[in-house]
């Protein structure tokens, strides 16, 4: 008699990214809230406009806001803690965003040749974005 156990499903890219999208989405919200309240504590309440606040929330890097009016901008935002958060949000954000773009593109363009082409282009793009962003984080 043949086994009635169902075969364990193979984990596909889409299954893995389904989980990753939820985990990274929650992580990005948490990291962004840390950046947002950090900016508020350091003077954003009186000294920042909204575009600047958005920059600090998602990428709290001293080089990222050259026009900020905060006097001790480099003091407040440099350091291992903020650098770690920046690298985390870059890796989570680039992967989450580019995988989302992949999901949308693959829904609209189907075919045996187009799918590997989309994946190849987005893979190179993903590595390039992370390399540039991490280089900026570690520059100072």
């Amino acid at each position: 008699m043949r086994s009635t156990h169902p075969r364990r499903p193979r984990i596909t890219l889409d299954m893995a990214m389904w989980v990753f999208t939820r985990v990274s989405g929650a992580a990005i919200v948490v990291i962004a809230l840390v950046g947002f309240f950090g900016a508020m504590l350091m003077g954003a309440r009186t000294q920042m406009d909204l575009p600047t606040l958005l920059r600090w929330t998602f990428f709290p890097n001293p080089n990222h806001v050259v026009n900020s009016n905060i006097p001790d901008v480099a003091v407040g935002w440099s350091g291992l803690f903020w650098q770690t958060l920046q690298i985390l949000i870059v890796v989570f954000g680039a992967t989450h965003g580019i995988n989302g773009l992949r999901a949308v593109l693959e829904d609209h363009f189907r075919g045996p040749r187009i799918q590997p082409a989309i994946r190849a282009v987005l893979f190179v793009f993903w590595l390039a974005v992370m390399a540039i962003a991490i280089a900026v984080v570690l520059a100072d």
Binding site: G93, G97, I98, G100, L101, V104, V129, I132, A133
Partner: peptide
């Protein structure tokens, strides 16, 4: 989907 793609395009343009 629309807002997600919008943010990706914005970040690309920004970089």
């Amino acid at each position: 989907r629309v807002t997600g793609v919008g943010m990706v395009l914005f970040v690309v343009a920004h970089i």
